[in-house]
Structure formats: structure tokens, C-alpha cells
Amino acid sequence: MRNWPLFQLRVTTPRLELRIPSLDDLDELADRAAEGVHEPGFMPFTFPWSDAAPAERARGTVQFHFGQWAGWSPEKWSCLFVVVDGGQVVGMQELSGTDYAVTREVATGSWLGRRFQGRGIGTEMRAAVLHLAFDGLGASQATSGAFADNHASYAVSRKLGYRDDGIQLHNRLGKAVETRRLRLSRDGWSTPAGFEIHGLEPCLPLFGAGEDPAG
């Protein structure tokens, strides 16, 4: 699509492909959401979308992507990739930025279908968008965060070199719960072998990164 080059943007790793979803991809991603993304009784998200009924989770997943596409601007964007492993959509990885042309800071968020967890996919898909951020967009900082009891997310951050960046309290289902903030600088990033970015150049102005990333 000539007027929306993001549909050509992909990041590939030795195992995974991250791409802006087609409508068929969104349908499959919605199926993953309906199947479940965490165990009952545990809530890893600030907004508890995953507690909805399966059909509502599926519709909400599609609507959320449509909303992010419609609201995209260089000043505030959220790039939502589907994560594909072996030809199957297994989850979603987000890379977002606000006033990126000035801050050169990105944030990440993700979820993975429950039956695909525990295979190292979460680490590899986060590393993929960090490769895009640092090596493609010229980011200087990447941030993440997770509830203190979300040990899997925290382990991924630690494995990729993030450092603790303080705590914050959030309302989770009516209770104040501590969130750990984490931060990774460009100096602390080393690109893994076999990671590649495809179709980025025409997208750079949409990210507010039209200038030379090294500048």
C-alpha cells in the first residue's frame, strides 16, 4: 500500500517474523486472545482486557489494532506487530513512542498465546523490536514495566540487559499494586546474530525518525 508503507515493515529473527498484521493475521491473533494469554486468577495488564469473555477478547483485539492505526501520528505512535512462528500467529509485540523525534525513547509491551509460552519466544520477539528501535530508528533509550509479580516479563527484561528504573503504583482490579520500571540504553544493546529489518526506510517519517538515526 503506497500511502501506508507500514504494511511492508517486517523484522525477522532466526525463528520469528514480526509484521504489521493483515486482516487475516488479525483474525488469527484474535483467536489467540480468545484462547487465553495467562492463567486464571492472574492479571498482568493495567487494563484487564484479558478478563473479558473469549468472544469479547477477540473482537476487542481487532478493534484495538484499528484504533491504533487510526490514531497514529509521528508525535504519538504505537506499532503493533503480530508475531509469527512456523507460519502461525502466536502473539503481539508493541513498540511505541511519544515525541520520538525529540526524546528518542521507546516503550514495549506484548502478549503471547498461553500455549506458546515457555519456549523463549517472548525474549526473541522483544529483542526483535529492540533491534528495530536501536538499529533501525536510532533510539537512545527503551523502557518497559511489569507488575512485581509478573516474573516472566521481568526475566525477559533482565535477560536483555534492562536495569531497574524505579517503581510505580497502579490500580489493578481495585488494589494498589507495585510496578517495576525498567530501562535499557543504546550503549547496553548488542544486536543478536540473524536479526534483520525489512521495508523500514519509507516508514521513517511516520515514526518521527526521518533524519539519520545516528544523528
Rank of each mutant, 00 (worst) to 15 (best):
H170D: 05
R181Y: 08
R10A: 14
V156H: 11
V177M: 08
Q88E: 15
L6C: 12
N3V: 09
V102D: 14
S153F: 00
S73T: 09
E201P: 13
L95T: 12
D165P: 01
I167R: 09
L9F: 07
G60H: 05
A139I: 12
L182A: 15
C203S: 06
D165M: 05
M1E: 04
A52E: 14
G208Y: 15
V90S: 06
E178D: 01
Y162N: 03
E178Y: 01
G122F: 12
V82P: 12
G36P: 02
A55D: 12
G174D: 00
A139Y: 05
E201I: 09
T46D: 12
L29D: 02
H38Q: 15
P213K: 09
E39G: 10
H198W: 15
E105Y: 14
Y162S: 01
A142Y: 06
F45V: 00
G215W: 07
V106R: 13
W4T: 04
W49H: 12
D25F: 01
L204K: 04
A101E: 12
H170I: 08
F66I: 04
D187S: 09
R126H: 14
G145M: 12
A148E: 06
L16K: 04
L23M: 09
A146E: 08
S96W: 11
V102I: 13
S96V: 11
R163M: 06
G120P: 08
Q117I: 09
P40E: 02
G161C: 15
L160F: 02
R19F: 15
R158M: 11
R181V: 02
D212G: 00
L206C: 07
P205F: 02
F147I: 01
Q68A: 07
L184V: 14
A52Y: 05
P74K: 10
A52P: 04
G36C: 00
A107W: 15
V129R: 01
A193Y: 08
A34D: 13
L182R: 05
V62P: 05
R186E: 08
D212L: 05
E105Q: 14
P205C: 07
L173V: 08
E39N: 09
F45C: 02
S185T: 15
L6H: 02
L16Y: 03
F42Y: 15
G122T: 03
R126I: 00
W72V: 05
A133Y: 03
A101M: 11
A101N: 03
N3S: 02
R183F: 07
A107H: 15
W77C: 14
G208W: 10
G215F: 01
N3T: 02
V102P: 06
A152M: 00
T191H: 13
R19V: 13
A34T: 00
R15Q: 06
W49K: 03
V82S: 10
G87S: 06
L23F: 07
A33S: 01
T61K: 01
D24C: 01
Q68H: 04
D135S: 03
